[in-house]
Design a protein around this nucleic acid. Structure first.
Lengths: 190, 190
DNA sequence: CGCGACGTTGATTTGCCTCAACGATTGTGG
DNA sequence: CCACAATCGTTGAGGCAAATCAACGTCGCG
């Protein structure tokens, strides 16, 4: 199992000693997905947070009018889950789908909580990542309130060029909060 | 200094013993604000997270076109700050303004970090609150992407009726991502 | 090859914004 | 305690960004 990526990720926030690294590795499990395969579907309890070793996924849900709304993309070195469902260990409302063939490392909820209680340094790590995720979500929200569709696309493309290239256009459009047709027109005009 | 509210808040997530409660109280400071007074202005480094003992505040920024964008409201038992600025201890871009006369308890950044290192239970508490805040921000974002202006208003009013009653309408409109005039028309039509 | 998934393009519609003018309410100095 | 300014909210006219609808390309894959 290839764990160097996730260890490097964590070590960007906190320094793990050997005991802590071993304890972490002990609860990691690996999973591979084919293109279009679901890691999670609505109604399921999200038991894991998944770290992307290779590949590309997205989370989305089906709105009342039948349209898809993309919540998040995840490529190498990102985490993905139905976070609401994971946090409360309650049935969720999201799909998590592999856009390309994908390998993830999974952290199971109970085992992760136990790891945090045993080694508070992981509490600290997850605090830092949650705070960063919150700041990110707040920025995205602002961008949605403030910017035009064209600006949102250009900002996203500037910041995440590889995601723009790797995901279907209709998924990107729903992430950016616009119709697929309009994104097509934006791309033509810029 | 009235600390029972913030202690009760924390005890909803974790159980503090006497030593931990004392350590927390030692770093709390109190502050009062008049109506329209600023707790924070753009360019300042946000040194504190503020817990609202009484009153009502909002955070907002001035967009490129000169319009105000409200990020967050805070009433009794909520926290408020320029979280991006607080997290990175870098100059921020938000105003935090008292809507009514307000009293807050403040947690200073360095002291809070030290408290977390000394007592990992606070690491756990801030992890949980950050995760909850992230889930909340994600839900708000979805609501903005998916729902019409009228639906956003009705959902917000249903969930936070007291905030709707306590804040100026132009501030609520900018929080919900619509013009003040349009919110006025929505209110008339429902 | 042909079918299904994805993207493009144009015509039309609409939700919401902008601008402008006018009430209502609150606060403040004379 | 009144006058009159600010501040905040309301209403209507007109305009625009983006949605919707419909039809048609295009590409990869069974």
């Amino acid at each position: 199992m290839e764990t160097s990526g996730i260890l490097a990720n964590i070590n960007r926030y906190v320094k793990l000693d050997d005991t802590q690294q071993t304890a972490l590795k002990a609860i990691l499990s690996s999973k591979t997905l084919n293109k279009r395969e679901f890691l999670l579907e609505p109604g399921m309890i999200c038991r894991h947070q998944s770290y992307v070793v290779s590949g590309c996924l997205r989370s989305f849900f089906i709105a009342a009018d039948g349209s898809e709304q993309t919540i998040q993309f995840a490529i190498e070195d990102w985490f993905i889950s139905d976070f609401n469902s994971y946090l409360n260990q309650a049935p969720g409302s999201l799909y998590v789908e592999a856009i390309t063939p994908t390998t993830v490392l999974q952290l199971e909820y109970e085992a992760t909580e136990a790891l945090c209680l045993e080694h508070p340094i992981f509490e600290r790590y997850f605090k830092m990542t949650a705070q960063k995720a919150f700041a990110f979500a707040q920025n995205r929200m602002l961008s949605n309130l403030r910017d035009s569709a064209t600006e949102r696309y250009l900002v996203f493309k500037e910041r995440y060029p590889e995601i723009v290239e790797r995901v279907p256009q209709y998924a990107l459009a729903s992430y950016l909060g616009m119709s697929a047709e309009f994104l097509s027109k934006i791309r033509k005009s810029v």
